[in-house]
Simulated scan of single mutants.
Amino acid sequence: MTLRPSSSSCSWRFHLFPSFHGPDVRVSFLSHLRKQFERNGIIMFNDQEIQRSQIIKPELTRAIQESRILIVVLSQSYASSSWCLNELVEILKCEETAGRIVMTIFYKVDPSDVRKQIGEFGEAFKKTCEGRTQTEIQRWTRALTHVANIEGEHSLNWVNEADMIEKIAKDVSDKLNATPSNDFDSMVGLEAHLEKLKSSLHLEKDGAMIVGISGPAGIGKTTIARALYNQLSSNFPLRYFMENVRGIYRRIDCDQHGLKLHLQEQLLSKILNHDGMKIFHSDVVYERLQNQKVLIILDDVDHLEQLDALARDVSWFGHGSRIIVTTEDQELLKQHGIKNTYHVNLPSNEEALGIFSSG
């Protein structure tokens, strides 16, 4: 598979920009939301080093413009801050002019109070409006009315806040994954490979499954696996793309048992978000993941010992899990007992012509 030159590249510095009233949510709800985003690999802008004032500083405006998703956490005192209101105006401007995705969270506040500026929320808003020009007040009123009409999560509808946070993180991840990416725009034949692979994964079935992707060096196995991972990862609570297993294996200087433990330590450290994990026996993967739904890509495997260490048996993983192995050696997959395999063939004449034309 060959890449065509990309005409543009993604300009996002952050996956997500949050707008919120600090005293209401910073050390409670927002800190837990931030931690969940970190677990899900979502990069959220951190405003801790920016001193807040009456106007939005240029670095904040840039952060809004360079974030793919803008999430507004509306709380009882949100409208007590002219900073928050000006930030909201800028966010909605980016939604209108630059196509940014805006999401809402109503945290202990009724959306209708925000929409109509009534109740405690309305009282806070009125105080902020004192001494302001009619132009400012109208701009803020329009922004609050608009954002309140964006469907979002309401904390008052949730019994368990942790469950709500998980749902929000999944929704954000889904939106990021659905966003067109330039990374794969120019890969000839990619969509056809992905459709065939997703069919062979039987995602509708609950059982765990190990699938192999084989093909000669340079044919695009890693590219296909990466694109597949990007499309599917939001459906799995735990996921990890383990790159260059062959290279990791060759760099380890220890005996066979030590090699396997090292590979397992890397896998578990990443998938469980536990840096520097140390394990002392080879059943730990089974013990930690047997009841978990995971998506794991083992990329560029070239020894049976690697598969034995990382995916010895499908029973190691919980219901719905999918383990995808890429390798140049189709025989290795057979030896490990992986029957469900996908072989990446050389491009068809039509695809080859497309590759040639793009050169």
Rank of each mutant, 00 (worst) to 15 (best):
S321R: 00
R322E: 11
A311F: 03
A309D: 02
Q292M: 14
I296D: 10
E305F: 02
L298H: 02
K339N: 15
D302C: 11
I296C: 07
D299Y: 12
T326I: 02
G320Y: 04
K334L: 14
E331V: 08
T327G: 01
V325K: 04
K334E: 13
N291G: 12
T326C: 04
L304F: 08
N291F: 14
D329T: 05
L310D: 04
I296S: 09
Q335Y: 09
S315F: 07
I296T: 06
I324D: 04
Q330P: 00
L295P: 13
S315C: 10
D313Y: 05
N291P: 07
D300T: 09
V314L: 00
F317Y: 07
H336P: 12
D308T: 10
D302A: 11
K339P: 00
H336A: 13
L289C: 09
V294A: 08
I338S: 05
H303C: 06
L310F: 01
E305C: 08
E331D: 15
F317Q: 03
W316C: 04
I323W: 00
E331S: 12
V314Q: 08
T327M: 06
K339V: 14
E305R: 11
E328D: 09
H303V: 04
N291K: 15
L332Q: 09
G320N: 01
Q330N: 15
H303T: 02
Q290Y: 14
I338H: 05
F317M: 07
Q306L: 03
D313W: 02
D313C: 14
Q335A: 15
R312H: 12
T327E: 05
D300G: 11
E331R: 14
A309E: 04
D302I: 11
N291V: 10
S315T: 14
R312M: 06
G320M: 03
I338L: 10
H319N: 12
L298A: 05
G318V: 09
I324K: 03
L307D: 01
S315R: 12
L333R: 01
D313Q: 10
Q335P: 00
G318K: 04
F317H: 02
N291M: 12
R322N: 06
Q330E: 15
D313F: 02
L307K: 00
D329I: 10
L289M: 15
L298E: 07
V325Q: 06
D329K: 13
